[in-house]
Design a binder for these strands. Structure first.
Length: 780
DNA sequence: TCGGGGCAGATTTTT
DNA sequence: TCTGCCCCGA
């Protein structure tokens, strides 16, 4: 007991009162609302160590993190803590620390047969899902011209995220619901026949398991005395239900997160999970971690102001004792090439002057496509960089090809993999033969491989017979090998299929592809080295569930390039956020309603990664597909307090900006003259209405007239004229009374979507619409 | 059955 | 711009 109390003491060492509270509250539900940089990870690690120190067994603890990388780091931190205390008896090695998906996969390997999965099941990634959806549509004779398989796959995924069965999906209001439901049903049948589960199934089937097998649910829930869920704001419905089940017996659930950092709404993340935690667990203790240890005052102030424009949030007070720091820099560039060069030049200068090491720098962007120019610029500037994602490694053709074989070794019924592997490299097994095999196999309830082993019987003729024999022989040879080490199997596979020869013969960039193939062997070898019990199946599971960030090796010591989504949970000394343009950040593909608040949170996440310096950039024109678009600076720039901004930047291609203030004024002028900015949306129910005449001299008036031009806190839309927000009741001289559904746009370009009792939904430009607010909805 | 050439459509964001 | 798909000739 003595040893334990020393560790317990160490766990609280150097913590604030709030942090201690979170660590020491070990009985009953706990919600930790943790602002960015508030030491949340530290609190979780110490809490786990503390639990062990005070007598919990490690294997009674389940900690769910957002990425595998975070899980690994958590494990390291806990172990370091324990080593530091000289405690070796109960290392955290036994604690369950993983992502929701990995955890569910692990449980389903054991209990999955009750929901139709054999232990050797394959995990399908998104592209496998699309392939399976395509097959389902083919079998149902649904023409691809009606909608694409990828569209259906997305709809099915969304349904699964909501825990809908095909029958429930049919009830939905969505377009094509009935057809989608049919595809969903068939798709599920195919997956079960292939002994495969997609990402959503891992969660969905886990939920079914917990609901339909009380014994299993009970034993799991009994087992986990302590359940910790990190990034709770990004949990979806299925994850929420799983967490609830797991914590049912002991009710020691600790959820940590920050509603302002919910950025996965598009993937079904439900902000209400965290916002309503206290309703779910009325006896919950709530701890707020609002002190920031990461960023300068300036950065924090900028982030705090920005996020205050969101209405769907719990207000909080972020503060820091850190120094004031330098202002944020804003680069306004001619085009995306100049932008990339400006960033590269600035980085180069910073690094050369010894201010900061490359590994302490990150560049964030909204979409992966933006990384190309940045890479090129950094390369030509001679700045070392590490890119997270890009075209994801495990999505590359050569990798998918090889993995398909390996999956078949473990799980023969996997028809998607069989279809892929059979004729790669080409074995003269064409589509005619494959179609014949499928047609023959389906009514007999056989998988593709079984059909192939009886190819002649199935009516396959010609050279395909020989090819099929060859393919099956390859698989047999692989299957004869021990499942461990995995790397040996990968090497054997490359040799047997003469894969390198195939790449040289049939692809345009064999060297690069071969490099990837070698990296796959390395990954397998690494896996063999790190997992004592690991075999081929384990390697495949890791390969399926690995995320972009998981593959990021910060030790490699270059500037990090990644999407804003990947940036969650990380921190850097200097952060560049590029592409601050309307329609890019915030990203909008069309005119339809779009969650601006989530985009704002995404920017918030990016900004709060910076410790010392943040640089924001945008380009005045940007190449998109083949053509070139003229852009407009992001509304988010306008939402930052002016006093924290400095224009400028000396790098090549930067259009010198005298000051942020004058830039913003010019921008407003331009914007005022550019009304209407958005194209009118053609739709039955909506139209842009300019109510009243736009004064001819409006352009001249704006900017010097009313007010100081600053945007008011907490209200964006038409702040000075019509301060309305979603939920407000309004009255219009012509249309009468209505309710505001949504407000988008900013300043004098704000547009409200209003549902009127008389005429239905109208889109109104607030500046001109003579709207009168009659009662207030939600808001601050 | 294979592979080249031409053409249409695509980019959110990720487990 | 780039990719992946379809069609056609060999």
């Amino acid at each position: 007991m003595k040893v334990y109390s020393q560790l317990a003491k160490d766990c609280l060492d150097g913590c604030t009162d709030a942090q201690r509270e979170a660590i020491q509250h070990t009985t009953g539900p706990l919600l930790v609302l943790a602002g960015p940089g508030s030491g949340k990870t530290r609190v979780i690690a110490r809490r786990v160590a503390y639990l062990v120190a005070t007598g919990s067994r490690p294997d009674e603890i389940l900690a769910i993190t957002f990425t595998n990388k975070a899980a690994g780091e958590m494990r390291d931190r806990i172990e370091t803590l324990q080593h530091g205390s000289g405690q070796t008896l109960r290392a955290a090695g036994g604690a369950w620390i993983s992502t929701f998906h990995s955890f569910c996969a692990r449980v389903l390997r054991i209990h999955g047969r009750h929901v139709g999965l054999k232990p050797s099941f394959t995990i399908y990634d998104t592209s496998d899902s699309v392939a399976a959806t395509k097959r389902a549509m083919e079998q149902l004779d649904i023409d691809q011209s009606m909608f694409q398989a990828s569209y259906a796959a997305k709809a099915i995924s969304a349904a699964k995220n909501r825990l809908w069965s095909p029958a429930q999906a049919r009830q939905s209001q969505a377009k094509d619901a009935a057809t989608i439901a049919k595809v969903y049903e068939k798709y599920d049948q195919l997956l079960r026949a292939a002994n495969a589960a997609d990402f959503d199934d891992l969660l969905l089937l886990m939920v079914r398991l917990l609901r339909e097998l009380p014994d299993v649910a009970q034993s799991l829930s009994n087992r986990f005395r302590h359940v910790l869920i990190d990034e709770y704001q990004d949990t979806n419905r299925a994850q929420y239900v799983i967490a609830k089940h797991l914590a049912a017996t002991h009710r020691n659930i600790c959820a940590t997160g920050d509603p302002d950092q919910c950025i996965y709404g598009w993937r079904g993340a439900d902000l209400n999970n965290i916002l309503e935690f206290e309703t779910d667990y009325p006896d919950a203790k709530v701890v707020r971690l609002e002190r920031n240890y990461r960023s300068t005052k300036t950065i924090l102030r900028a982030a705090d102001r920005l996020i205050s424009f969101n209405l769907a949030r719990k207000p909080k007070t972020l503060w820091t004792a850190n120094p004031e720091g330098t202002t944020l820099a804003l680069f306004r560039c001619e085009d995306e090439t100049s932008e990339a060069q400006a960033v590269a030049a600035d980085i180069d200068e910073q690094v050369r002057s010894g201010h900061v090491a490359p590994r302490e720098i990150a560049v964030f962007y909204r979409i992966n496509a933006q990384s190309r120019v940045l890479e090129a610029a950094l390369r030509s500037q001679g700045v070392p960089y590490v890119i997270v994602a890009g075209t994801e490694f495990y999505q590359r053709k050569e990798i998918k090809d090889l993995l398909a074989y390996l999956r078949l070794v473990v799980n023969p019924p996997d028809d998607v993999s069989a279809g892929r592997a059979a004729n790669t490299p080409p074995r003269r097994i064409g589509s005619t033969s494959v179609t014949r095999l499928k047609k023959w196999a389906a009514p007999r309830g056989l998988c593709l491989l079984e059909a192939m082993s009886r190819a002649k019987e199935a009516g396959v003729k010609g050279p395909a017979i020989k090819g099929i024999e060859d393919f099956l022989e390859t698989l047999t040879a692989l299957r004869a090998m021990p499942r461990r080490p995995a790397a040996a199997l990968v090497e054997k596979l490359i040799e047997l299929t003469e894969y390198e020869r195939y790449l040289r013969r049939a692809t345009s960039s064999p060297e690069e592809r071969m490099e990837n193939v070698r990296e796959l062997v390395n990954a397998a070898a690494e896996y063999d080295g790190s997992e004592e019990e690991g075999d081929l199946q384990g390697f495949l599971e890791q390969a399926a569930l690995i995320s972009d960030v998981d593959r990021w090796d910060e030790e490699r010591g270059g500037v990090t390039l990644m999407t804003l989504h990947s940036a969650k949970g990380l921190e850097f000394s200097t952060v560049y956020i590029v592409g601050l343009e309307e329609r890019l950040l915030p990203l909008m593909r069309n005119e339809s309603a779009h969650d601006i608040e989530e985009e704002r949170r995404l920017f918030f996440v990016g900004l709060t990664r910076a410790k010392h310096r943040a640089v924001l950039t945008f380009a005045e024109s940007r190449a998109r597909y083949g053509s070139r678009d003229y852009t407009e600076a992001s509304r988010f720039l306008e939402e930052l307090p002016e006093e924290v901004m400095a224009g400028g930047g000396q790098g090549a291609g930067v259009v010198a900006t005298a000051s942020f203030k004058s830039f913003m004024r010019r921008r407003r002028l331009r914007a005022a003259g550019a009304v209407p900015l958005r194209r009118v949306r053609r739709s039955d129910t909506e139209e842009i209405v300019y109510d009243g005449d736009m004064p001819a001299d409006e352009t001249a008036e704006w900017g010097k007239g009313k007010g100081d031009g600053r945007v008011r806190r907490g209200r964006r839309a038409g702040a000075s004229l019509n301060a309305v927000a979603a939920g407000d009741q309004v009255e219009h001289p012509t249309y009468g009374r209505g309710a505001v559904l949504e407000v988008s746009g900013y300043g004098d370009l704000a547009v409200a979507l209003v549902r009127f009792h008389t005429v239905g939904i109208k889109r109104l430009v607030l500046k001109y619409a003579r709207l009168r607010k009659t009662s207030r909805g939600r808001g601050e």
